[in-house]
Structures are given as C-alpha cells and as structure tokens.
C-alpha cells in the first residue's frame, strides 16, 4: 500500500534514475554513462591543463605545446584512438539492447495519446488479453517487449530506470525491451513534446515478483455489475461516451479504460495519488489540475453524487 503514495515517497534526488538502473536494459547504459562522465571529466581536465600550461606554463612546456605536432597529437591522434574504442563499445551495445526477433518476452502494446497512455497486454499470439491505462504491471526477471504506437502526435516512452526512451510515432510500431530486476515502482514521463500539458504526462511501471504478478493478473476481472448509484450516475452523465468499464454498458473508447481504475497507483496519468479525494477532484474539475486535457470539467454533480461516483470508481479494483 505504501507505494500508493509514490509521488512524495520517492523524494530521493540521488542517485538520479539514469544512474540507478533497475534492470538489464538500463544497467549497461549506466555503466556507459559513468564511463563517459568520468572520461569526459578527465579529458576536460587535460584540456584545462593544456590551456593552463599554454597561459602560465614554463618556457619548455610551452614550446612543446606550441606547434603543429601538439595539434596533431591532441586534436587528432588522441581523439581518434579514444573515439574508436568508444564507437566500438557504443555500436555493439546498441545492437545488444535492440529487440531481436524471437525473444521470449511478455508483450504489451502501449499507445500514446494526448496526454495519457493506453496499455494493452497481449498474449503469446499477439491478441489483446487485457486493457488498462497509464500503468504497466510486469513480473520481475522477465523481459517485456513493448510495442509503442501513437494515436495522435509523437510521444516518447521513457522509464529511465528500466531503459532508454523510444518514440511513439503515428503510423509506426517501435519496439522497446524493458525488464525489472526487483519488485517496485518505476516512474516515467513522456519525453517528446506533445503540446498542452506535456509536462503532466506521467507513467508508472509496477514490477511484481512472479507470484504476485500472477495474483495481480488473476484479479483483473470485469466489474461485477454491483455498481449501484455510482454506476447509474456514470452511465447517466455521459461518462460512458468516452470511458469503458468492462462488465457494464460503458464502452466509450476516447478516454482511458476504467475497468480497474481503483487499483491504479495514480490518477491523471502519473500525476496525482489515487484516493477518493483526488478521484472526486479529478471528476469535478480535471481542467484545474491538468489544463488542456481532453476531459471537460463536471461541475453539475451534487456533493453526494460526486462522492458516489468517486466511491464507485475507487471500488473498481
């Protein structure tokens, strides 16, 4: 339950997520990043030393620096050697991190929308098995192949602790492999400017142990129909025009699937904790929270109605 409050609980600034890998598709990049950062600092120190010598050095040292030979050594030979090594490292790493055909990975299709994410879990044959939004649950220790698409403009999918980013481009399906080593919550955010509230388009990956994942998976059943007044309000107020709740008459496709909205970590695509209060606030006036998002404000509900609706949605676990 504690990870429900992830927004504030991850108050750590250090280590930065890029340098704090959570799985095998991020770890080699972290190693590379450290090598580059340290190597870069060393080269900068060398240049500063050379510059310092040129300005304040002894006659003998200055004479060594002051000629075409020094330019060839420092400006050509040294970078040529270092960069050849780096290039070989970079190229082989690129290829080893790129999805190869025929991996035994769990498949999930994620579709970027302005300004949220559709999540379709696929079975082994690529058929859609389960729909969700703004949150991805994965088992630890198993690679997950993400098929990234876009429904409108270009977005970019980025969970820094699990892998580098990959764009979601209309008309294309890009593939990205992620894998988590340990159970936990991994946050991410849209990295390609997509207009409006691009800054508020977050995402959450929850990694479970294999057993917990099966339990989580098994609990994904359509709503049981016991909606009561909350469901009636939902259907009567037009919510169903955009949202689907499986097991009910609500089958709208424009907005996130709400079948399991109550069990999500966040609301508003990774930006708010999910509790009855934020649920009510989001329903009544999401425009105040995430300006420009596609859901209008619903001021017409009475207090009781709003609570009933929020309670109903919160109950959709």
């Amino acid at each position: 339950m504690s990870n429900r409050f992830l927004l504030a609980s991850t108050s750590a600034g250090w280590p930065p997520p890029v340098l704090d890998p959570g799985g095998p598709y991020a770890e080699p990049v972290t190693l590379l990043a450290w090598a580059l950062l340290i190597g870069g600092a060393v080269v900068l120190a060398i240049v500063v030393a050379a510059l310092g010598t040129a300005l304040f050095g002894s006659k003998r040292l200055k004479a060594k620096l002051g000629g075409e030979r020094a330019i060839w050594l420092g400006g050509f030979l040294f970078p040529a050697v270092v960069l050849t090594g780096l290039l070989i490292w970079g190229l082989s790493l690129t290829s080893s991190l790129s999805p190869q055909p025929g991996t035994d990975a769990m498949r999930v299709r994620i579709i970027g929308e302005m300004w949220w994410w559709r999540v379709h879990y696929l079975d082994a044959r690529g058929q859609e098995a389960l729909r969700d939004a703004n949150e991805l649950h994965i088992p630890v220790g198993r690679p997950v192949l993400l098929e990234l698409e876009s429904a409108d403009v270009i977005h970019s999918f980025w969970i820094p602790r699990l892998a580098g980013k990959m764009d979601m481009i209309p008309g294309r399906t890009n593939k990205l492999l992620i894998e988590a080593d340990r159970p936990g919550v991994y946050k991410g955010q849209c990295a390609e400017y997509c207009g409006g509230p691009h800054a508020l388009m977050g995402f959450v990956v929850v990694a479970h142990s294999a057993k917990d994942f099966e339990r989580w998976r098994a609990a994904r059943r359509p709503a049981d129909g016991g909606g009561g007044p909350g469901l009636d309000l939902f259907l009567a107020s037009g919510c169903a025009a955009c949202h689907t709740i499986r097991g009910t008459a609500a089958n709208g496709l424009a907005g996130p699937d709400l079948t399991h909205v109550g069990s999500r970590q966040t609301l508003g695509a990774g930006i708010l904790p999910n509790n009855p209060g934020t649920m009510a606030g989001w329903i009544a006036d999401s425009q105040a929270i995430k300006p420009g998002n596609r859901m209008p404000a619903y001021h017409q509900f009475s207090g009781r109605e709003l609570r009933a609706l929020a309670a109903y949605l919160r109950g959709l676990e």
């Binding site: 904790p273 509790n275 209060g277 934020t278 009510a280 105040a288 929270i289 995430k290």
Partner: peptide
C-alpha cells in the same frame, strides 16, 4: 503540509505555497 501534498488535496483545494494543482472544486 507534506501529507496534504502527498494525498493530493490540491486536486480540489487551492493550497497556499503550492502552485499546482490548484483545484477549484473545494
């Protein structure tokens, strides 16, 4: 103050010294 932020009270209530979210419901 931290708990209020963590719980997202701002989703409905404009909170002093927190510019976002500035909910207008409450």
């Amino acid at each position: 103050r931290d708990a209020a932020r963590r719980l997202g009270c701002g989703a409905c209530h404009a909170m002093p010294d927190s510019a976002w979210p500035k909910g207008r419901v409450g």
